[in-house]
């Protein structure tokens, strides 16, 4: 069988496109699972996870505590228990650029600043925020400049403050939204909010004050997503809590795939509630109803 030059020329576009096609398809390779802290105490319904540069902090919600694991490449070790009376029921965490961690407490509905070792520093004290004065944070994130973005369930807006809590700006939720559960900021400063109820993602461009529909009709791929993250390539990761999966969207909002599945075994997830991404492409998932933390290499 001889391959003529003509045949090669015909196949050239396909051969050239193949690596690009393969690069777009992600793989979630299970790395490891964490079940215990350093004292062999089992995790119980962990709901939050924050990826720091040298440590990963876990909100061990069912035990009403935090657990700090030392991070060394793809491994998490030790697992130091941190019990804080100021954060008795942590439900969501977010690492800041400066190495602190923001912790949302489900009971008091306050956001706390924690030091890198997990010790309590202070609560986020909002200053000069426009009415309504009462703020009910549902979730939070930080941008590259360490400004804090808070999803305010009561004021139906995203509030942006600096690290001292001083108000910088706000984005009202679009009128047609169902329930906004999470916020993410990409590296260019684009702000995304996730409407869990309607399966939609809205985006505010870096120079905009308003959210515009970005992706809709996700109900075909998602039951109830609760967490949104972006990676340095601008891809968007949605965590489908009620049908236990990760849904990947391209930077343009195009559907790229649905990964992982419901189950109890290693590599399967069960009502995951938050995920974070490390700089070396590892996704750490708070696998809530499996009472564990799982690490996946995103390829």
């Amino acid at each position: 069988m001889t391959i003529t030059i003509k045949t090669l020329i015909c196949l050239l576009p396909i051969i050239c496109a193949l690596p690009a096609y393969c690069a777009d398809v992600a793989k979630f390779k299970p790395l490891t699972e964490l079940y215990l802290d350093a004292n062999k105490i089992q995790l119980k319904n962990p709901e939050g996870v924050a990826c720091g540069k040298t440590a990963v902090l876990v909100a061990d919600t069912g035990n009403g505590r935090l657990v700090s694991y030392a991070r060394n490449n793809n491994e998490l070790k030790n697992g130091v228990e941190i019990k804080l009376e100021q954060v008795p029921y942590p439900i969501r965490l977010e690492a800041t650029v400066q190495g602190k961690v923001l912790a949302l407490d489900g009971k008091s509905r306050k956001i706390a600043f924690l030091a890198a070792d997990g010790s309590f520093v202070s609560y986020l004290d909002y200053k000069n925020v426009p009415l309504p004065i009462d703020i009910v944070p549902r979730s939070m994130t930080v941008d590259a400049g360490d400004n804090i973005y808070v999803v305010d369930a009561l004021g139906m807006r995203v509030i942006v403050t600096d690290q001292t809590g001083t108000f910088l700006r706000q984005f009202p939720f679009p009128k047609e939204t169902g329930f906004i559960s999470d916020v993410a900021v990409d590296q260019r400063g684009g702000v995304y909010i996730l409407d869990s109820m309607k399966g939609q993602v809205y985006k505010a461009a870096p120079d905009s004050k308003l959210f515009q529909p970005f992706v809709s009709g996700l109900q075909a791929h998602i039951y109830l997503a609760v967490s949104i993250d972006t990676d340095p390539q601008g891809r968007i990761y949605l965590l489908d809590q009620n049908d236990s999966a990760v849904v990947l969207l391209g930077p343009d909002g195009s559907f790229q795939g649905r990964y992982l599945s419901y189950g109890w075994r290693a590599g399967q997830i069960n009502y995951p509630s938050q995920a974070c991404l490390t700089e070396n492409g590892i996704m750490i998932i708070a696998d809530r109803n499996n009472s564990r933390i799982q690490l996946f290499k995103v390829q």
């Binding site: 489900g106 009971k107 009910v136 369930a153 139906m156």
Partner: peptide, 12 residues
């Protein structure tokens, strides 16, 4: 006084 709130209760 409970740990987990139904979010609509604390909504607008």
């Amino acid at each position: 006084e409970k740990n987990r709130m139904h979010w609509p209760v604390v909504s607008k």
